[in-house]
Design a binder for these strands. Sequence first.
DNA 1: AATGAATGAGATTTCATTCAT
DNA 2: GATGAATGAAATCTCATTCAT
Lengths: 209, 209, 209, 209
Amino acid sequence: MNIKKRREREIEEMRELILKAASNIISDEGLDKLSIRKIAKKIKYSPSILYHYFNDKEEILNNVMKRGYKKIISAVSSAELKDTSPEERLVQMTKNYIIATLKMPDEFMVAQLSKSEEALRHTSFLFKGAVREKPALSLLYQCLKDIYKNEEIEEDRIELTAQSIAVSTLGLIIKIIVEKDIGEEQKQRIIDFFSEEIILRIVNDSRTK
Amino acid sequence: MNIKKRREREIEEMRELILKAASNIISDEGLDKLSIRKIAKKIKYSPSILYHYFNDKEEILNNVMKRGYKKIISAVSSAELKDTSPEERLVQMTKNYIIATLKMPDEFMVAQLSKSEEALRHTSFLFKGAVREKPALSLLYQCLKDIYKNEEIEEDRIELTAQSIAVSTLGLIIKIIVEKDIGEEQKQRIIDFFSEEIILRIVNDSRTK
Amino acid sequence: MNIKKRREREIEEMRELILKAASNIISDEGLDKLSIRKIAKKIKYSPSILYHYFNDKEEILNNVMKRGYKKIISAVSSAELKDTSPEERLVQMTKNYIIATLKMPDEFMVAQLSKSEEALRHTSFLFKGAVREKPALSLLYQCLKDIYKNEEIEEDRIELTAQSIAVSTLGLIIKIIVEKDIGEEQKQRIIDFFSEEIILRIVNDSRTK
Amino acid sequence: MNIKKRREREIEEMRELILKAASNIISDEGLDKLSIRKIAKKIKYSPSILYHYFNDKEEILNNVMKRGYKKIISAVSSAELKDTSPEERLVQMTKNYIIATLKMPDEFMVAQLSKSEEALRHTSFLFKGAVREKPALSLLYQCLKDIYKNEEIEEDRIELTAQSIAVSTLGLIIKIIVEKDIGEEQKQRIIDFFSEEIILRIVNDSRTK
DNA sequence: AATGAATGAGATTTCATTCAT
DNA sequence: GATGAATGAAATCTCATTCAT
């Protein structure tokens, strides 16, 4: 079965090659400029061969997105083990998330900005009860619960806080990606300030006093 | 020179007509469905005439975006007159901004997500010193200054706070646009919670105590 | 309004040019080999210009067909005036029909062989009651009625006879078109034999004796 | 040489398999939807293997057509054995022919309407002397001869009559195929009337009296 | 100022076919 | 004998843009 395996690997590599090229084009020229032709040219194959590896353009796009959230989720959840204060964990998680996503800006943008049902099934988190369904938001929620464990705060408020943090962080990431030319230093300053200060201020629910 | 002026006015009217049509198409069908032909059909002129008033499609798009920022800025600053507490003003500004942008989601997305220099010239605000150059951010900054007028806080920290608020609000807006199917009620809940609570928490710089 | 008229004429000429080219291709290579590209190449224009004159391929095809039956109907009905015996008229009509259609084999084939609803609305005549709805078949029917005026024959039988004649003539025409290389002489022999003898034999309803 | 024979048989089986698949596709989706890939998928082989058994698509098509005529001829001639009057035999033959062809309408249409030399070699029958070369027409001719055995009719006239019958029947079949939506009942009525009455009228050469 | 004719490039997709293995 | 990778041509259609008038 060696030969079969090799072939499978080759296929996987080709698919990966295609997806990467697609990602690049999307980040360079925008989602709407992505075309089968362009991908083919980039990987120096004929356009038709792409249909060997994917059924159509949409399938390529869906896979670009999938690669997106898979990588991100694994990046975030891996850093979860540490036994420090929940506040510190929150800060660390936020930073990890930002750093992980900034390593793959193209996939992130495609995934987060797509309005297709397929994408939204993975990315939506604004609905009521999202903390119980969405793994990433759930991590955030657990953190907040730990932080508020001595206070009496309604679940709803905690969910809204978690969603607000998620939304804010998303905004930061998108803005950093779009403003691609702020220097490295300024980027770091903002990320640090945001995750080390803003996040903690957000957590600071005034009702708790 | 009356005739000259009249012509200029006519030209301006035609340009306005074109931009409005383009805006409508973008709102109705999305940015990628915008085409010269469609604009022409909508205003009942031939496609070629558009090239009398604009050099190419991109110029039209840039102007659509410009109209976008203008509308938004005026929406925000109009609410600026009230003589209430700076905190209340901040909350109100945020809400106004969110509501104004959600009325023109596609133009907003196009403008905010474009990486073109032309667009970034208007939309960028993460660089150091942005509060002095960007009108919208400047409003925010003034508000914060009022809030912190009795404390000693470095300008830098205030700028970073302003930028964080801007970034977070952006994230909220984008997310609401993308998750187009959360119901009206939940949308309101999140917007209210975010602008009435989260924003105020963010302002609450712990160093001030 | 001279200029407007001229333009209209030019458009009509161009449309005619396109339709003729399409007809030729269909007859040379078959309906399924017809392509926008081929038409364009034949008339030495770019493929896109065709969309100036027709909305899409289907519209071109429909017009090729329309040209088909229009010409034919006019060919047949024009020769209708003569005041000879009904038998002679029948023979003459058949001949006229055959000769007329053979002058435009391509259009005839497209129209008669298309299974599209649009086409069938014009070409179908096998259904019960067709003699009352289809002008061409009706002519045939009137002829038969004249022939049988002294006999007692049910309407149904006459209709079936008319349909049989129509069907048979159709078969002859198609076969002559497909077998494009039987010589002129043999073609004439068959046409004459068919219209002068076979048709009259068909009319010869044995029940009338 | 057993092995050689086995291989030949296998090849023949594979060719048969391919042709059957092609036939099915043509019946189900129409000639123009036939593609090498579809055939391959249907027989669960790779497209390339088809080129082991046939030189190209056209060869496959030609063979599909050949299978077509064979089936039809066998259908017609099988009914040939009965020892009834020649008239009855003629009627029966016609009916059998119509019924047999209507069971494979697409193959029939392809074959009968193709102007390719290859096809015409099998399908043409309008040329002078066709009754001596074309098996199917020859059957018809024999029938007519039997019918006219007591009369003095020139061979030529009989051939022309045979050709006329063939042509008329062809027209009927084509029309029934194209007008796919006349109901079953009306179809039967017409077929019966045509084969039981019209055919006999055609045979009724007036010179014989 | 305005139009309509025309083009060429590009979009996605399907297909017959070849070739190395 | 059989496969899968790969290609190039072709299909329909849309678009931004130019140009003569």
